[in-house]
Design a protein around this nucleic acid. Structure first.
Length: 571
RNA sequence: GCACCCGUAGCUCAAUUGGAUAGAGCAUUUGACUUCGGAUCAAAGGGUUGCAGGUUCAAGUCCUGCCGGGUGCGCCA
């Protein structure tokens, strides 16, 4: 068991010995903000004492009387208003990391008990290009899936593709009247996009075209053979595009159940909600009113339009029901743009009225927009949305130019491969680094910068470690870590916090915690690297430092992998 | 009008149940052994955390008001 967990467990036991009724979930242990205080701290006793009108320092004394950590910690100190400061004994640090070096752990534990989590993210639309608007959901969702899996949870990823909606009326009209087969073969997404825009524009001046589109939609939804065939072809062409993008991003989904999958359930679902008095007629539509929530008082969720058609909320409720029945998850996480907050409040609220007994946690993990350097929504120079494929191309191209400049002697194929990893990694890292709820300004230069908190910087730190092992000639004698220099100790202790960081990422759905942890790790490694020779050190010290290098590389690699970023041995 | 989010160094961003002296990078200034990879490192300056109150042992974080910006608000998804 990792030291922080041991401290936590025994501290909780000691607290419960002194205050048997105390809520132990409030008792937490975290890394100290400043190493001068110690390695770990707990401030739980301050609030526990305040709530009971006790003196916090006296309570701390009493708890310490029941707390024996002498096998792993120095004497526990009470500081300030009642902080407990824990400092690891060097032997405990060395022992834990030596076990890690033997492959027994990598500074994190599996969650207990494992939970089943459904993750809904990415959700592109059929017949449209994937654009920057999809990138955050896709990358954030994938990272959360990886994090939760790493911690031992059962994760089901489901891509809720937009494959069923009013846009297909216009698309089918365009397909039937204006399709350019050659263009479709060359670039199907652009051709479908062209058709949609064409019919959309025509519809603005000629209402008969809109009427035609509505009729084609009705035919499609009532199962017309020809329209279904066209729809299926559009689906297949789009799926091919999605697959290409996801392959480049290294992302896989367990399921891709689009909106159309739930079509057959929508009518009966609305009937059921009306029958159960969850929903009722209002101004010709059917709505679920959520009076019990003040913010939603005047914001009912519409589940059937006055023309009999169904809404986004209807499909989402059917989807929710399907996921619960099929996978029995402990939690369902939706990763979408922040503009959908109201929508998810409505869907979750409506669901609670429908299934008050459900224990499944519903989480809307939302994120801010990507802005251009002018502070407005990120667009191309021509003012169009930036296509994801173009963005990835440019990232790789820019990375290729940098690699070629820095390392002209490498064969081109190798430079291409490095550029792929660095370019894609840089895009992902730039997206995961900001607090997800902030809007952020997209900048190529910042993203591919060689220093600062960027993917290339982390990858560079990794390649330096790999380089040491390439140069290593003599046999390693001992797999044992004995950090002595301050830079070694600081690095070693930071390695232990990988697990706490992963738990924070999973708990708050914030990958940027992991980015910042890895950046600190790379920084601490570099400080070590500058001050502590490895290959030139004498034998015992060299072996110990090799262990430290190896563990750092493994945590860096695993951490980057959790962010969805590959590594390279040279760059 | 109502609701949600945001306002932190010149710029772009951090800050883990409220927790100890608000941290990075860029830019600026100064410095480093022809290096276990200089795509590096060390150091300096730069802050009344939009404003005003309040709660607390402790507030960038919570509450109230104000100012400024963004987003959403019944038949799009």
């Amino acid at each position: 068991m990792l030291p922080d967990k041991q401290i936590l467990r025994r501290l909780q036991q000691a607290v419960s010995a002194v205050l048997p009724e105390a809520d132990l979930s409030m008792v937490m242990v975290r890394p100290c903000p400043d190493p001068k205080f110690g390695d770990y701290q707990s401030n739980a006793l301050i609030s526990l004492a305040k709530a009971r009108k006790m003196n916090p320092r006296q309570l701390a004394e009493n708890v310490l009387g029941k707390l024996d950590l002498s096998n792993i910690c120095e004497k526990v100190e009470i500081a300030g208003p009642g902080f407990l400061n824990f400092r690891l004994k060097p032997a405990a640090l060395a022992e834990t990391l030596t076990a890690a070096a033997r492959g027994e752990h990598l500074s994190f534990d599996q969650s207990s008990p494992p939970r089943t989590v459904v993750l809904d993210f990415s959700s592109p639309n059929v017949a449209k290009p994937m654009h920057v608007g999809h990138i955050r959901s896709t990358i954030l969702g994938d990272c959360l899936a990886r994090t939760l899996r790493l911690l031992g949870n059962k994760v089901i990823t489901d891509n809720h593709i937009g494959d069923w909606g009013t846009q297909f009326g216009k698309l089918i009209v365009g397909w039937k009247k204006h399709l350019n087969a050659g263009a479709l073969a060359a670039d199907p997404i652009s051709e479908m996009e062209r058709l949609y825009k064409l019919v959309n524009a025509a519809g603005e001046s000629d209402p008969r075209i809109l009427d035609e589109a509505r009729q084609e939609l009705v035919k499609l939804q009532s199962g017309d053979g020809e329209n279904l065939k066209i729809w299926r072809e559009m689906l297949a062409l789009s799926q091919k595009q999605f697959d290409e993008i996801y392959a480049r991003l290294g992302i896989k989904f367990d399921f891709s159940l689009g909106e159309s999958f739930y079509n057959d359930r929508l009518k009966s679902l609305v009937d059921e909600l009306v029958g159960k008095n969850v929903a009722r007629e209002s101004e010709g539509a059917i709505a679920v009113f959520l009076e019990d929530q003040p913010q939603l008082k005047d914001k009912p969720a519409l589940i059937r339009k006055s023309d009999g058609g169904f809404n986004y909320a209807t499909t989402d409720l059917a989807t929710l029901e399907h996921r619960l029945k099929t996978w029995h998850p402990d939690e369902i996480i939706y990763v979408t743009d922040g503009r959908q907050q109201l929508h998810f409040q409505q869907v979750f609220g409506a669901f609670k009225k429908w299934h008050a007994e459900s224990q499944t946690r519903l989480a809307h993990v939302w994120f801010g927009s990507i802005l251009g350097e002018d502070g407005k929504p990120f667009k191309t120079r021509a003012g169009e949305t930036v296509k994801l494929a173009d963005l990835l191309d440019e990232a790789e191209e820019r990375a290729f130019n940098i690699v070629s400049e820095k390392n002209p002697s490498l064969p081109e194929a190798e430079r291409r491969e490095i550029a792929r990893v660095v370019g894609i990694g840089a895009v992902k890292y730039a997206d995961l680094l900001p607090n997800r709820q902030s809007d952020y300004v997209f900048s190529w230069d910042k993203m591919l910068a060689l220093n600062g908190n960027t993917a290339p910087y982390l990858l560079y730190a990794y390649t330096r470690i790999r380089s040491i092992f390439r140069k290593l000639e003599a046999e390693r004698q001992k797999m044992e870590l004995n950090p002595a220099a301050p830079e070694e100790i600081s690095l070693a202790k930071h390695l232990l916090n990988f697990g706490l960081t992963l738990e924070a990422v999973a708990g708050e759905y914030r990958p940027n915690f992991l980015c910042n942890y890895l950046y600190d790790l790379a920084g601490k490694f570099t400080a070590f690297y500058e001050n502590c020779p490895v290959l030139k050190a004498d034998k015992a010290m060299r072996d110990s430092r090799l262990v430290l290098c190896d563990l750092t590389a493994r945590v860096l690699k695993k951490g980057l992998d959790t962010l969805g970023i590959e590594v390279v041995d040279q760059m």
